[in-house]
Nucleic acid binder design. Structure first.
Lengths: 252, 252
DNA sequence: CGAAGTATTGACTTGTTTCAATGTTAGTGG
DNA sequence: CCACTAACATTGAAACAAGTCAATACTTCG
């Protein structure tokens, strides 16, 4: 049984290896980080708009959403983060948060002081570039969201989003023959895609009736990847994955 | 009369100073960069989806759009870039472009080899962090776009976008009593906001009738900043500007 | 069992698109 | 200097995708 700290180390090493092969120096540096791991319940905002965090975090288990609220209190989900993601890497160089981070399901999150990350980046050009790249891919996900929300109708929008989720889960080895576990309710998917729960419900029925996906109680299975990709006009380039099919199990 | 190279240097120094005060070492490093400056006509795609650029660029004059196309050839403008922006800074660490860069108006663009930028970042932690921060603010602009396109109706969406343009132009000293020069046609604003030209036209009439803006032939003037901010639910935090009111003139 | 959260369905409403025509402006060449 | 052209802006009417409202069912869990 691994300690939580080892688990964070293994996951980070796996994630960074997806960008480039790490040398022994980098692996050593990573392994000496000391993480503080927290268990958080569902629906908890753990970093607030306006905060000036002194740590960044790595999602170990569960799902986290970036959110922003309208004047009327309506919530927009800006992006969805799964194990292996570092959803507030930006706070390393942009002190003040311009959005919230909240848990969707119960999650396990590892925190690391900015000081330690900065130290790492100062010592290793490779790690510096890799963390930077990680934050750039985050921006690429945002661009994909802008594209789909503006250009696709409700059905395709959902298809595009589910493609993204499928490939991102796959990249961290979280997809098996049964699909992947995915705790967003239809209401929350609506908040991601700028649609109402009613639209999501109807669109999900469309995708199911076309035998593209199966979708029930926090679990999603893509039955026809190519079909879903076509339906959602999904071009996975923006994920910039060096390889897709390694499993987290193999890495840890 | 400054050379184009000096102009690029001055603009970059000004821009980076908006993040943090640069020391003499950093200013010296920047001043020794050698830029290649190009004049490009309007509507020209100068970096293509799939390209692997060996340079990044700095917009000196004119407006540049990041674009992505649907299967049906419909164009989405992902973001709009004005003088002082480095719209493909990401290519420094994400080799392959996942979108196009095209000019909107006639532009002047300065190119710098990735090699030189990487060298700079290796030598100076400060510059490394500053360029990184620049790319993170780019991501923050994306988040603002996701928010406005999903949560605001046509009128507010346009108001929000015009606020963003107003403050970003102001930050580089491009706003005077007459407003600022802005070459996006109503059709292109539609491609930014996920609306049709008809909607933009009607929304712009709304904003004009409320005396919030004046808008004619490539020129925009915000008459009532506070009013427009309120109307568009605009929270400028995401711009992360250290100061807004320095002028480019003063810096160069 | 009751309660809360989530999913589903139908009827009606609305903001935006689509289509199509007309007006305006700036630039070009005779 | 004016006719011609292309790009851009404006307007009205009809169509439609998604929203709203509201009722009902299913699931999970204490």
């Amino acid at each position: 049984m691994k300690s939580a700290n080892d688990q964070a180390t293994a996951l980070l090493e796996f994630r960074l290896s997806a960008h480039r092969t790490l040398g022994p120096k980098e692996r050593d540096l990573i392994s000496h980080l000391s993480w503080r791991v927290e268990e958080l319940p569902a629906r908890q905002t753990f970093i607030h708009d306006g905060d000036k965090p002194a740590h960044s975090c790595l999602v170990l288990a569960g799902v986290v959403a970036r959110t922003q609220y309208t004047a009327g209190g309506q919530r927009q989900i800006l992006s969805v983060h799964i194990p292996g993601d570092m959803p507030d890497l930006q706070s390393l160089h942009i002190g003040r948060m311009d959005h919230d981070l909240e848990t969707v399901s119960a999650t396990q999150i590892a925190f690391i002081p900015h000081k330690d990350l900065n130290h790492l980046c100062a010592i290793s050009q490779t790690l510096n570039a890799t963390f930077w790249r990680e934050s750039l891919i985050d921006a690429a996900l945002h661009r994909a969201a802008i594209f789909r929300n503006a250009q696709l109708d409700a059905d395709s929008r959902l298809a595009h989003f589910l493609c993204e989720m499928h490939f991102r889960h796959k990249a961290v080895g979280l997809v098996d023959e049964e699909g992947f576990s995915f705790p967003l309710s239809q209401e929350l998917m609506g908040e991601v895609l700028g649609l109402t729960i009613v639209s999501i419900n109807r669109s999900s029925q469309t995708l199911r009736s076309l035998d593209l996906i199966r979708m029930q109680k926090g679990h999603i299975q893509v039955l026809d990847v190519d079909g879903l990709v076509r339906f959602g006009q999904f071009d996975g380039t923006f994920l910039h994955q060096r390889f897709d099919h390694e499993t987290l199990a193999r890495a840890s």
